[in-house]
Design a protein around this nucleic acid. Structure first.
Lengths: 215, 215
DNA sequence: TAAAAATTCCCCCTTAGGGGGGATGGATGG
DNA sequence: CCATCCATCCCCCCTAAGGGGGAATTTTTA
């Protein structure tokens, strides 16, 4: 018998899932919690929970933080994240927070059961829509590169300099490595600051990571 | 009729795919190239190519670079990447380079045809194994976050300061925001430099991103 | 080929950052 | 209850970084 805890403040959904699971003899929706506090209380009680279905949007704290907490305190209990939306940002965060699975709330019965069994056995399960969305968000057409597309055309040389700034080299060290004068490096630095709307080196490194300028 | 170009130096595979496609009346493997040079020549000729199957490992230049070149010169021709392995690194690179699809070489006929039709219609297609592998590689269990997990313990206050450094604030501005003296901020900066083995602010920002210290 | 952009280098000067310490009260935790 | 860490603040000194220009040469590209 596999004991399941569902953490979600939408009662309709909780009941729906309970109904879906009732036909499975070996799965039992043992508890449900409407908020994070209750969820943690249930986990601290003596009852044995084998799997958690966790909503991303909770009333008290956000699901990502709760997921992290649980994964830290109860690493043996796998978590499947539930959500309405399929925004790549949230998905990424939940996966990084340690969730073993990810399902959309409009998932059918078959996929839900399959996901639960899969994850309970120690594997991970990510719904097809979710993975597709995530991968698609990485492609140059559909991603955040558009945010900056009026944006900064970094030249080859500026990229060289930027890469070395990220690697913590000083202006003089960069000059030595590139066989140019420190003055030139300073010029490139200024161009980078202007093009990337940065105020200092920290901002340059931030831009390098966020806009993925190093390749 | 959909004209397909396959770029792959494994003749056996080329023939195999040709055989698989022969049963489809509207798909035609019009050309094959064993290297990047030939592929570009074919694209420059007057023949109309509607879709490209591109191997990641080519004899002359690597598939990622070729993919980038083609996407730039012929943005209207979609590319499906083919590969033996499912390493997240390569997959990520190919997607970023602009490939609209990704398939493993052991893909069955059904999936191959489905992927081609899907991509030809302007959608993207990533095989289930591939996306799963990619997503799994992001989870904290299986990735490089373990490199740093015995790592430096940043205190709460240090994290506050670090977050503001990443946001390009100066020591004085950080002091104002946190209602403490600039001297204190300097102290925290020094601790951060020591704990994160960084040489300067750029290194702090780098560490913040690579070790995911901001949350 | 002519215009635009990139790369190189220099001047001035001001501010921010980093290296070396040391000191205090307060919280935490064995 | 005592050691340890944390957060706070200070000193001195020096280097690195940023802001404001200008200008020459080469490379790209339209």
């Amino acid at each position: 018998m596999l004991n399941i805890l569902i953490v979600d403040d939408h009662l309709v959904l909780v009941d729906g899932i309970k109904a879906l699971l009732s036909s499975e003899a070996d799965l039992r929706l043992l508890h449900h919690a409407l908020d994070a506090r209750t969820a943690l209380d249930i986990l601290e009680s003596e009852e044995e929970i084998h799997l958690i279905l966790l909503d991303v949007n909770l009333p008290d704290i956000d699901g990502v933080a709760l997921c992290q907490q649980i994964c830290q305190k109860y690493p043996e209990i796998p978590i499947i994240a539930l959500t309405m939306h399929h925004e790549p940002g949230i998905i990424t965060k939940m996966i990084r927070a340690g969730s073993k699975g990810y399902l959309l709330k409009n998932t059918g019965k078959k996929e839900l059961i399959e996901a639960i069994r899969h994850v309970a056995m120690g594997n991970s399960y990510y719904s097809k829509e979710v993975t597709h969305q995530l991968v698609a968000s990485m492609s140059p057409q559909n991603n955040q590169s558009q945010k900056y597309d009026q944006g900064p055309k970094i030249t080859r040389r500026e990229k060289d300099v930027l890469a070395l700034i990220v690697e913590e080299y000083t202006t003089e060290e960069i000059a030595e490595k590139l066989f140019i004068s420190p003055s030139t490096v300073i010029s490139h630095r200024k161009s980078l600051l202007r093009k990337l709307n940065a105020k200092n080196s920290a901002g340059l490194v931030k831009a390098a990571y966020e806009r993925d300028l190093l390749k």
